[in-house]
């Protein structure tokens, strides 16, 4: 039975670097791993994962939110992982607005954040952090110890249930804890009958289906207006 690990987080937080380090460690432990990358417009990450000696595929969501795209393809991706005899199937998702969590109840959800970005980032992203099982903090070597601790605290305040681990994507230090937590979580289930952990934002307005013109008369479907003071 395979374990599925879904890894999300803001762009350039170091998801691919952390996953590459995790793959090396899992492989040296004799585990069979497969990786699927979900991106928006283009990616070469599947190639770099294959260079690490693991089967890898990539899916491009193009005009669709990558998290919605992942949810729509999860069953097929899981079946591919089983065909590849993967004990651990890692799915990396680019995410878009980070308002959703692609995580499901039966998979392990990991959120990667870098402490170089902004102390306000944890507040800005939604369920991808607040619903995750493991939060990974990267780039700790680029800031002072005090800043890492303050960042840690703000992550922990938003999701006290998650294990938090500091990983250096370049040297790989700390990745052993990520692996340990993945090992500890009992998640070797079939994806059949799985459910998302939280609702995804609805995206069914005129602009979702190709409308370009600005103005009320062109808007149909779910349209939400701001409250703007007169």
């Amino acid at each position: 039975m395979q374990k599925i690990v879904i890894i999300g987080g803001p762009p350039a937080a170091g998801k691919t670097a952390v996953i590459s380090q995790l793959i090396r460690l899992l492989k040296s432990d004799g585990k069979s791993v497969a990786v699927c990358k979900i991106d928006c417009l283009q990616t070469r990450d599947d190639e770099s994962y294959r260079m690490l000696g693991v089967p890898a595929i990539a899916g491009l969501s193009r005009d669709i939110c990558p998290d919605h795209f992942l949810a729509a393809n999860l069953e097929e991706i899981a079946a591919w992982g089983i065909r590849k005899a993967a004990e651990i199937l890692i799915i990396e998702t680019a995410g878009l607005c980070h308002r959703c969590a692609p995580a499901t109840k039966k998979t392990i959800a990991v959120c990667v954040l870098d402490c170089v970005s902004s102390i306000r980032v944890p507040d800005k992203i939604g369920p991808v952090l607040t619903d995750c099982d493991i939060a990974v903090i990267t780039k700790g070597d680029m800031v002072s110890q005090a800043e890492t601790e303050v960042f840690w605290q703000s992550v922990s305040a938003l999701n006290s249930r998650a294990e938090i681990v500091e990983v250096n994507g370049v040297t790989g230090s700390g990745v052993q804890y990520l692996k340990r937590f993945i090992d500890e979580i009992d998640a070797a289930h079939s994806i059949v009958g799985d459910e998302l952990r939280s609702d995804m934002p609805s995206a069914i307005c005129s602009y979702c289906i190709g409308e370009r013109r600005i103005g009320n008369m062109y808007q149909q479907g779910v349209v939400t207006k701001m409250e703007i003071p007169t």
């Binding site: 102390i119 306000r120 070597d141 002072s144 110890q145 800043e147 303050v150 960042f151």
Partner: peptide
Amino acid sequence: AHLTQNMNYIMDL
């Protein structure tokens, strides 16, 4: 306690 080589803060506070 680790006083690193960093010479600047990057946190927006």
